[in-house]
Design a protein around this nucleic acid. Structure first.
Length: 1048
RNA sequence: GCGCGAGUGGCGGAAUUGGCAGACGCGCAGGACUUAGGAUCCUGUGGGGAAACCCGUCCCGGUUCGAAUCCGGGCUCGCGCACCA
């Protein structure tokens, strides 16, 4: 707890207003001079370090108090500064923090800057100004703006991710990942939960390798049980082989992954930056998909835990759902398909019978043989319907199994696919393309030879990059099979409702019917359906309803046979569940039974097993940029990698003259990132050998993955943060930010946190207990009849509610949109504060509506809130004299005054706890509405009310508190208590309904029971009149609410 | 296409989660005080009707004594994912 703040500012000595206001102030000495008041108190808070908080162990720190860690998502210091959207969340957390302080919590409420990033670098490329310089300037401006709002941050903890003191620890955490592997064993975590798998120091793995408890196979993958499997010993491996083995286990590892490479821009582009023509969004240069050696983070190992632990946090359900979808867990089976003998020159299963015999009883091998295609499916129950296979164009087997006759076609196809961007491949058109490889595989369940195709609708990045195609029951396979005339065998009986709907919707593929020379198929089906249902004249609008309501036998007589004969005549595949058909001994089983049984069968025969898959991919962690954290890594002469030791951190960003990426017109040229120009920095001599530094930088997410930990102990030079302080402050109780970070930032930060947790560096499994997403602040935008945007401040509303361009008088139309320069509807917080003050800004944004909702800024509404603050001011200060208002009275407060006060304390407190600030301010309005007309205002009531207002309008509240005679800041005054008895009305109005319609209102005591209410209601003259001649059937009386009389 | 969320006066939004729809604010109308007001204060303000009353929470249907709220179907808007096998 900070010590008492006793330097009470004297308002008379505070900054004196000047300019046009000064004149008015001489006539209105006691007016609400927000500018002076806000400057005064901001200086006071700063001088007195009012909001500074220590850590456990500090002399003035009371560790006995409960804590709240209240955090905003920190901003990127852009050149444009804060827009009105930023402070929305900041105001909310500040109100909550100020309130919580008054409630007696120790509050950690810090602010900083996510300062590495592209805009500063882009600016440097264009102007030559160093990003550090731009960033520092932008931070200064943003700090200035943040301070204008009077946020109660502990500014001593301010920091930026781009300083070496900070990124030293970003690099350190990266090294933790580099020096760790994922051990799959189940363990009990420090919180007593059973968890499968955790990060462990890679030194532990090396120990086991050295002790020969773990071996290595020919492909340099781990052999877990070297006792009964052939393997190589660690001692016999070369340096680079060892490096490869470890690289495959590290949580931060190097891998060749396909990226969008633009040689002309000298950089990798995100999918979003590539046009559908496969060219760069900026500059229209060609883009190639090429494998590039990248740093990767093995987040996929954490997929299950990231999914499961969503149960531990209190987040908005939609955000949890987005994370679940992003992780994309699915359950199914891996199945091995042997490439058929004689179909290709490559090694194949010469003797399928012997091969199956050999596999039976042994389980699925960890790795596939050369001549085996492994697929993943969520529907192993449809295996009998797998009539062909598809490999992704990038699948390594494509080149090997393609027959000589098909080679030219396949190669051409693969090359085209390489040039299509991911975006294009997944674009809406989705026309199915593909080429037959000439090879066949054997379906393990029925030993049928099925053709193997290459098609780009199969993605190398999901599952195994190969699928078994079941055209009858998968939408994509269905389309593909129809395009290329592949057989479609139904193996799941569609349910009647589905068939019913297909026929009635006329979902029959007429084009396909013409193709198979049955052009009248649709009519045939519909006719016989109608006939079976006893309807004459085919299916018309009237007859359709007869079909719906009538006899369903036509489904079994007509639709089922039509489907069984050829499912392709329908427009859609049946992808639902149902009973198995055409599936040998499995016929008749339900989908669920079948899945279970076939998985067992596959297991027994050594051709498959149950499997779980995730959409989540490992995180590409490399950027070919300058303005980011350098990797603390050295590359050796033999291609081996080594991490810097902790004592060599931070590895500082070198100075370079030119920030432009190296540009080339050779698509195969290797990129040289800007760091390559730091010739001195680039290389290091170790024992006579030359090692090279990694020339890439980390992505912008890196710094924000752990900043919340640094806030706990930002000055610590020995550790990323003090252990005891971490244990006290973590987890973050309340985290507020935009929903745009629902997936990436929040997922990445949770991942890093779990790694640190596994390695015993932090004490909680999850970093963010409660998450709140503030909505977007939109703005009205106006456009004239030519569609040209008209600046907001040039638009005038006319009495009839229409809008005109003030300059031309032409009508304009109003729309609600994001704020943007192009729409000329940006609102600058600096302007609003200058005109109305920070307290007004804070209250206005909170009053706009629910925090989570997107809502339009409407400058017209701001004066209303300003007026509220003005009225509060005048409850205390006399406008004419600048003295305390003569209406303030020391007489005992009236019941009315007490009731509104206690109601207000109760409502505002409850609303703040629930982040419902809009209704809290509504209640403050009500208090002022009741208090204003009173000619005697009880001083104690007003004083208490000032405390209630303080979290929302802290400058105003401090000033009034001070004028009311208090000599210390109210920041740590206890939040007032309310008495339930006083917060309740004694008598309430009760609505009396007859048959649900209000017919009368009666006054009753608030705690009158049902019986009393019923009697009072029936005694009411209006009710008696309305009930005349009617019989009362029932009376429902809800105490405190209403009475409903049911009468006929 | 799949998933999620939301539709309430002229506008922003309330409604104890099934109990008087429209709290509070803006805007608008009228009034008071003022040399003046973009200040302040008071009154009114969902629609229709002279009134008694009637109609009203996107639309249609249902459950219930009672529905903005729950259920079924549909429409519109916003967001997320998008050939994930």
């Amino acid at each position: 707890m900070p010590e008492q703040h006793d330097n009470r500012p004297d308002p008379a000595r505070g900054p004196q207003p000047s300019g046009p206001d000064a004149q008015r102030s001489s006539r209105d000495p006691g007016r609400y001079d927000f500018a002076a008041i806000e400057a005064l108190w901001q200086k006071f808070w700063q001088d007195n370090k009012t909001f500074r908080i220590g850590n456990p162990g500090a002399p003035d720190f009371d560790a006995g108090r409960p804590k709240r860690y209240i955090l905003d998502m920190f901003p990127y210091p852009s050149g444009a500064g804060l827009h009105v959207g930023h402070p929305l969340g900041y105001c909310a957390t500040d109100i909550y923090a100020r309130y919580s302080r008054m409630k007696g919590f120790n509050i950690l409420h810090p602010m900083g800057y996510d300062a590495f990033g592209l805009p500063a670098e882009q600016y440097a490329i264009e102007t030559g100004v160093h990003p550090a310089e731009t960033t520092a300037r932008n931070i200064d401006n943003m700090r200035r703006q943040l301070k204008l709002f009077g946020f109660s941050y502990d500014w001593s903890r301010e920091m930026a991710t781009s300083t070496p003191e900070y990124y030293k620890w970003t690099q350190w955490i990266f090294l933790q990942m580099f020096n760790s592997y994922y051990d799959e064993a189940v363990w009990t975590d420090p919180n007593g939960r059973l968890v499968r798998g955790r990060a462990r120091p890679i030194a532990e793995l090396i120990e086991q390798l050295e002790a020969n408890k773990i071996g290595v196979d020919d492909a340099l993958d781990l052999v877990r049980n070297p006792a009964d499997q052939p393997h190589r010993k660690w001692a016999d491996l070369s340096v680079s082989e060892r490096d490869t083995v470890l690289n495959r286990q590290r949580l931060a590892y190097l891998d060749e992954v396909p990226v969008n490479w633009c040689p002309a821009l000298g950089t990798v582009l995100a999918n979003e930056e590539v046009t559908s023509e496969g060219r760069s969004d900026r500059g229209n240069h060609p883009v190639y998909r090429r494998p590039l050696r990248q740093w990767m983070l093995r987040i996929t190992r954490y997929a299950e835990r990231l999914l499961e632990d969503l149960e531990l946090v209190d987040w908005p359900e939609p955000i949890k759902l987005m994370q679940r979808n992003w992780i994309g867990r699915s359950k199914g089976a891996d199945v091995d398909f042997a490439v058929a003998s004689g179909s290709v020159d490559a090694p194949v299963v010469a003797d399928y019978e012997a091969w199956t015999k050999e596999r039976a009883g042994r389980g699925l091998p960890g790795k596939t043989e050369d001549f085996v295609i492994r697929v993943y499916t969520t529907r192993p129950d449809t295996l009998f319907g797998a009539t062909y296979m598809v490999l992704a164009p990038e699948h390594p087997l494509v080149g090997r199994i393609t027959t000589a006759e098909q080679r030219a076609d396949v190669e051409r196809y693969v090359e085209t696919a390489r040039h299509r961007s991911d975006l294009d491949r997944t674009a809406d058109t989705r026309e199915k393309t593909g080429v037959f490889t000439g090879a066949y595989a054997i379906n393990p369940v029925n030993e049928q030879r099925i053709p193997i195709w290459v098609a780009d609708y199969v993605l190398m990045s999901y599952g195994t990059g190969a699928i078994m195609a079941v055209p009858a029951h998968d939408t994509r396979d269905f389309e593909f099979a129809k395009t290329f005339d592949l057989p479609i065998v139904p193996v799941v009986q569609p349910d009647e409702t589905w068939l019913h709907e297909q026929i009635l919707r006329g979902a029959i593929d007429e084009e396909y019917c013409r193709k198979i020379r049955r052009p009248n198929f649709k009519e045939e089906v519909l006719d016989s359906a109608s006939r079976a249902a006893g309807i004459v004249g085919g299916i018309t609008a009237q007859n359709a309803s007869a079909l719906i309501d009538g006899d369903d036998s036509w489904i079994n007589q007509v639709a089922m046979p039509a489907y069984a004969e050829n499912p392709a005549v329908f427009s859609e595949a049946f992808t639902g569940e149902g009973l198995a058909v055409n599936s040998g001994t499995f016929n008749g089983q339900t989908t669920a039974e079948f899945k279970e049984n076939i998985t067992m069968w596959l297991n027994e025969h050594g051709v498959g097993r149950g499997a779980v898959n995730y959409k989540l991919r490992d995180w590409v962690f490399t950027r070919q940029r300058y303005w980011g954290e350098p990797f603390p890594i050295l590359h050796g002469p033999g291609g081996q990698t080594r991490g810097l030791s902790e004592s060599d951190l931070p590895l500082e960003l070198p100075e370079v003259e030119d920030f432009k990426p190296a540009v080339s017109h050779d698509k195969d040229a290797l990129p040289e990132p800007p760091l390559g120009r730091a010739t001195e920095w680039k290389t290091v001599e170790i024992d006579g050998a030359t090692w090279t530094r990694d020339l890439n930088t980390m992505p912008q997410w890196a710094g924000s993955c752990w900043y919340y930990l640094r806030f706990i102990d930002p000055g610590n030079a020995e550790r990323f943060c003090d252990r005891a302080a971490e244990r006290y402050w973590m987890p973050i109780d309340t985290y507020v930010g935009g929903a745009e970070h629902a997936v990436l930032h929040l997922m990445y930060a949770r991942f890093w946190h779990k790694v640190l947790y596994d390695l015993d560096h932090v004490s909680t499994a999850e970093p963010f207990t409660t998450l709140i997403n503030q909505g977007m602040i939109q703005s009205f935008a106006y456009s004239d009849k030519r569609g040209i945007n008209v600046p907001v401040d040039e638009v005038e509303e006319r009495p009839d509610g229409t809008f005109v361009d003030r300059r031309s008088g032409e009508p304009v139309v109003q729309a609600i949109a994001k704020m943007s320069k192009a729409l000329k509807n940006v609102v600058n917080p600096d302007d609003v504060i200058a005109q109305f003050g920070a307290d007004t800004f804070r209250c206005y944004e909170m009053f706009m509506g629910p925090l989570e909702a997107s809502k339009p800024w409407n400058t017209r509404d701001v004066p209303g809130v300003h007026k509220l603050l003005n009225r509060i001011w005048r409850l205390v200060v006399d406008a004419g004299t600048n003295e305390l208002s003569p209406a303030l009275s020391d007489d005992p407060p009236s019941d009315e005054a007490l009731r509104i006060l206690h109601k207000t304390i109760k409502k505002v407190g409850a609303d703040i706890e629930e982040f419902k600030f809009n209704t809290a301010i509504g209640q403050i309005f009500e208090f002022v509405n009741v208090m204003t007309p009173l000619d005697k205002r009880p001083r104690r009531v007003i004083e208490t009310f000032v405390l209630v207002v303080a979290p929302f309008a802290p400058h105003l509240a401090e000033e009034l508190w001070s004028r009311l005679g208090h000599d210390r800041s109210l920041a740590y005054e206890p939040w007032p208590q309310y008495e339930e008895r006083l917060a309740r009305d004694e008598t309430v109005e009760i609505a009396v309904q007859i048959n649900g319609k209000v017919r009368a209102k009666i006054m009753a005591s608030a705690d009158a029971d049902s019986k009393t209410l019923e009697e009072a209601a029936l005694a009411d003259p209006k009710i008696r009149q309305a009930l005349e001649g009617k019989k009362i059937r029932k009376v429902i009386a809800i105490p405190g609410r209403l009475v409903n009389i049911v009468a006929t």
